[in-house]
Computed example of a mutant assay.
Amino acid sequence: MPNSELMPIGVFAQRSGLTSSALRFYADSGLLPPAEVDPVSGYRHYGADQVARATALRRLREIAMPLAEVGTVLDAEAGEAARLVDEHVAGVVGDAAAARQKAAVIKSVLGGDRPGLLIAALKGPVLADAVDHVLTATATAYGPGTAVLTGVHVEAGHEAITLAATDRFRLSTRSLVPARTAEQTWVGTIDGDDLRAAVTEIRHSALVRIEAVPHGIRLRMDEREDRHCRLLSEEFPDHRLMLASLGEVTTRATVAKDLLLRALEEHPGECIALHISGHGVDVRSPNDEHPGIPLVATVTGEALQIRFETTTLYPAVSTAIGPDVMLDLRGHDRPVTIRSADRGDLTTLAMPVRAEYSS
């Protein structure tokens, strides 16, 4: 390779984001040998065409991939490399979840494994369904100060326990009657990922005792290992105030859940408009560029057109219990309440989008 196309190790280090010492290590390990080594001085030079490999190597190491796996990924075809990266990340995530659970158990043992304060005892399948329902309203990513939006807010009283979650575009609440009376009321916001990881075991347990312990809750299940869920320190949004300030319902539509979901699936746009009138519910494009999908519905009140992002409305409808959903509307720019027509203990709010954002 001509000298004009080579760069010394220092320059290559700046280009690739790797230190000179790391480059020497990767050269000695065979992952990234230099393009040329001066036989007299021993100076190493790299080619411009090696920058991409070096950058990929650095990024793979940043996600804690072992050297042996890094080499396999770098030498694999694109599709196989992507599969190997996904497989590695899944392992890291699984290890992290297991480590969190083990750490919670260790902390419990170090604290003497004192009995927690019973805040609710619920049938496992009932609790698992409720957790699944409200988790659809949690945020999947967050920034500084918004980790609480990935959690589930728990309010445990003597007569009921209420779960709530919101990502500020949706709000989902579910109230359950405990199988046993709680010892004391309790309020806190639990890490959503911890609850999500425990759902399968909860579902297969006849009875789940929820106990308040320092820094979280403990789920106790017969013949199964205890599960610990971390307490989030941030304050949960005042969802009760939000519900109380919604205003009067001006339009109510009851529609078959499966038909509405199918219409949302078949609609090609990322944003949809619901045209609600005495004739039923029509699922259309906001700008009417696609034919509408008419749905039979029972409608009372004023005719109304309201727009939603499909990613907001679809999960809200899909979690409804039973064959029919009831939409309570208050105007084109107000949250819509989505309820199961035959179950009032599950309520979901979905925020519409403004006309200028849906065109």
Results as ranks from 00 to 15, higher is better:
98 A>F: 14
100 R>I: 00
96 A>M: 10
12 F>A: 02
260 L>A: 04
154 V>P: 00
333 D>H: 02
31 L>I: 02
262 R>W: 08
341 A>I: 14
237 P>L: 12
70 V>G: 09
59 R>A: 01
156 A>V: 07
262 R>C: 12
295 L>C: 04
110 L>E: 11
15 R>F: 11
320 A>P: 10
161 I>E: 01
209 R>D: 00
205 S>Q: 10
35 A>Q: 08
326 M>W: 03
161 I>T: 00
107 K>R: 15
30 G>V: 14
352 P>K: 06
81 A>C: 09
353 V>E: 05
335 P>G: 06
266 E>H: 15
299 V>A: 06
126 V>Q: 05
102 K>A: 08
76 A>S: 12
353 V>Q: 10
220 R>Q: 08
102 K>E: 09
13 A>V: 11
198 A>W: 03
30 G>Q: 09
262 R>F: 12
132 D>W: 04
92 V>Q: 10
329 L>K: 07
224 R>G: 01
30 G>A: 09
81 A>M: 13
113 D>E: 08
178 P>V: 07
301 G>F: 09
315 P>G: 05
18 L>V: 06
236 F>S: 02
256 A>G: 09
232 L>P: 01
78 A>G: 12
187 V>A: 04
229 C>F: 01
144 P>I: 02
146 T>E: 03
357 Y>M: 15
313 L>A: 15
178 P>C: 08
236 F>A: 03
73 V>Y: 14
53 R>D: 04
94 G>K: 09
120 A>Q: 01
291 P>W: 11
243 L>I: 11
137 A>H: 12
310 T>P: 11
169 F>N: 10
11 V>F: 12
173 T>E: 06
25 F>L: 15
166 T>M: 14
127 L>I: 09
354 R>K: 06
132 D>T: 07
198 A>R: 11
